[in-house]
Structure formats: C-alpha cells, structure tokens
C-alpha cells in the first residue's frame, strides 16, 4: 500500500518532532471485524511513529488483548493510547483516541504526542491547581470530525 502521508507532511512532522526529548509509546488497538478504519489508522500511526526515534508503537487486538485494553480503558476500534515512559514502564496519562486521526485530528495527534513527550499539558496554572485537587473520576469525550 502507498504511504498515507506525503513527503511534505512527513518533513513538517519530522521537524516538529525534532524537539522531542522523551519517548512516547503508542498503543494501537484494532479488531478483525467491523472496523472500517483499523488498517488505515494502523498504517497512519506506523508512518507517524517512523518520523521520530522517540516514538514507539505496539499493536494489539481489542478482543485478544482484552485485559490490556481494559487497563487502558480502550473500548473502541481503532483505538489508541498515547503513553509516556518512565524507564521501561508506561505512564498512562489517560489520553486516547477513537477513530482515525486524519484531517484536523492529525494535527491534534501530533500536538498530543509532543505534549505527552514533554509531560507538560500547557494549561493555565489555575486549571492545573484545580485538577490536582480532583478526587473523583472524570471522563471527557471530545467528539470531532476529520474536516
């Protein structure tokens, strides 16, 4: 299959990734059936991951790797988790995507990879202070479209 990203985009992304100082591990979850965009998403992620030596990726099946999916709260395919790394351990920040991150979402993905790598959310001090004191679960689901 031909590459999904053209050379121009690859160059831009590679340039953006140049500032990455810490690794990010992408966990991809696919499914054999009923997943129109699994193959494309996996390929897209593989191409993105190849653009920086700070990025690595592992590929799982939502059903065959159900325990891991549950641990990372993945229940949709294609699903992906952007995890930080502490030595060999993964840091789950609770940042994930469901569906192919193309179009506008592609830039969100690149930005999120940079944020997870830096460990810096980029939020206001006030927002951070509020979030630090949270004591109950919060699920934010941001609905988006590629255009």
């Amino acid at each position: 299959m031909a590459d999904l990203l053209n050379d121009q985009i690859k160059g831009q992304v590679r340039e953006a990734f140049a500032e990455m100082k810490a690794p990010v591990h992408v966990l991809f979850f696919g499914e054999e059936e009923n997943c129109t965009y699994c193959d494309d998403t996996q390929q897209l992620l593989e191409e993105v991951v190849s653009l920086s030596n700070q990025l690595e990726m592992s590929v799982y099946d939502l059903n065959a790797n159900a325990d891991l999916a549950a641990r990372f709260n993945v229940d949709k395919t294609p699903g992906m988790v952007l995890a930080g790394k502490d030595g060999d351990d993964l840091i789950d920040y609770g940042v994930r995507y469901a569906g192919i991150p193309s179009g506008h979402e592609f830039s969100s993905l690149i930005n999120d990879l940079l944020r997870v790598s830096s460990g810096d959310s980029g939020l206001d001090t006030k927002t951070r202070a509020y979030l630090k004191d949270l004591k109950e679960p919060v699920l934010l689901q941001v609905f988006v479209t590629p255009t």
């Binding site: 965009y37 991150p101 979402e105």
Partner: peptide, 22 residues
C-alpha cells in the same frame, strides 16, 4: 487535562465512525 490528574480520562472520538455514541 488528563495529563494533570490521574482521575481524568480524555478521549477524542471521531464522530462519523461512532455515530451511535455521537
């Protein structure tokens, strides 16, 4: 926000692929 609290999960969902949920 998810990065700032272990209690927060953030999920970007492609609405056209998950229309039922949307």
């Amino acid at each position: 926000m998810a990065m700032e609290s272990e209690w927060v999960q953030a999920e970007a969902i492609e609405a056209t692929e998950f229309q039922e949920l949307a």
